[in-house]
């Protein structure tokens, strides 16, 4: 079972690696942009899966961290910080602190309260970003200069940002699954299944959940930072709660708590939205009811089709 899901992941990564070359040669280079979009979504969704799939904590405020990562890049560049590694460190620190504070508050409760509170704090982040008049406010901000890696443009559209994103994707994939199988991940899953049992064993459910929340927030900020660098534009739209909803959709469509769910879900959703959009500009008229239908009638997600038996949480 495990080998099959590894095979699926390996196959996808290999395809993603050769995709730009193939697309270029066949004159469909514009699709490369879509692939990058899907990969960036997958990174954020993988982080969210740590919360929702492994931890059983449904967050509707995850896109706030994506927004934070993007704005750290924009504001950092405006302040004259150009090294992408420095910007990354700042993004991780800011997102981590925001997650620590809001997570500690949200985790004072559980279940639906957690969902509502993450939603509210996410919205707070969104409105804060829209009120940054100096950085474009509602309209967002075009980045006239981009971050560099010690002066090189490798992490830019002019360089090899596609490969950088792919590398981060693979690293995130590896990290999230490594965490899932670690001591920490085991406790997190135990707390999801039966928090009282985990506490009676001697684990502080709160601490483990909060740690997961912080890790997930930090990873999402990396996705945000790269999104800004790739779009060469930031906007509060990145942090809307609808974007958080999209990430949840990706997870459920791909298969919650499964090895490749976030990856498959992101590729599928981006492709589906693009395809629907090509048929009908008002594609949400189809997409919305489709979503309702998936929830009502389909279970297990794409992952269970490609690698049956691995869709179970945390396997």
């Amino acid at each position: 079972m495990r080998d099959r899901s590894l095979l699926v992941a390996g196959g996808i990564f290999a395809l993603l690696l050769i995709a730009p070359g193939v697309l270029d040669a066949t004159g469909q280079a514009y699709l490369t942009g879509l692939l990058m979009k899907a990969m960036l979504l997958a990174i954020a969704a993988m982080a969210l899966d740590l919360l929702v799939g492994q931890g059983g904590m449904i967050s509707l405020g995850h896109s706030a961290f994506v927004g934070i990562g993007a704005y750290v890049l924009a504001i950092g560049l405006a302040a004259g910080i150009e090294n992408i590694l420095v910007l990354l460190a700042i993004a991780l620190a800011v997102a981590g602190s925001f997650a620590l504070v809001t997570g500690a508050l949200a985790l004072r409760t559980s279940g639906v309260y957690f969902l509502m509170i993450t939603l509210a704090f996410g919205q707070m982040a969104y409105f804060t970003l829209t009120s940054l008049a100096a950085y474009g406010g509602d309209d967002g901000l075009t980045l006239w200069s981009l971050a560099t890696l010690f002066g090189s443009n490798v992490a830019q559209n002019a360089g090899h940002i596609y490969l950088v994103i792919l590398a981060v994707l693979v690293a995130t994939w590896w990290l999230v699954h490594r965490i899932g199988q670690s001591r920490f991940g085991r406790v997190l899953r135990a707390a999801r299944d039966n928090p009282e049992r985990a506490a009676v064993m001697g684990f502080s459910v709160f601490r483990y959940r909060l740690t997961a929340y912080v890790i997930a927030g930090m990873i999402a900020s990396v996705a945000g930072l790269l999104t800004a660098q790739q779009n060469e534009f930031v906007s509060p739209a990145l942090a809307t709660w609808q974007h958080s909803g999209d990430l949840l959709v990706i997870l459920v469509v791909g298969g919650l708590g499964s090895r490749n769910g976030a990856l498959l879900g992101a590729l599928f959703i981006v492709a589906a939205q693009e395809a629907l959009g090509a048929v009908l500009p008002e594609w949400r008229l189809i997409y919305g009811p489709l979503l309702v239908g998936v929830v009502l009638f389909a279970k297990g997600g794409l992952n269970s089709l490609l690698a049956p038996g691995t869709a179970g949480p945390g396997r």
């Binding site: 949840l248 959709v249 459920v252 949400r284 008229l285 979503l291 929830v295």
Partner: peptide, 16 residues
């Protein structure tokens, strides 16, 4: 709750 969130999210997208 996740199912409820997703289904009602779909309804929002549709009605908007």
């Amino acid at each position: 709750h996740l199912d409820q969130v997703l289904a009602t999210f779909g309804i929002i997208l549709f009605l908007n």
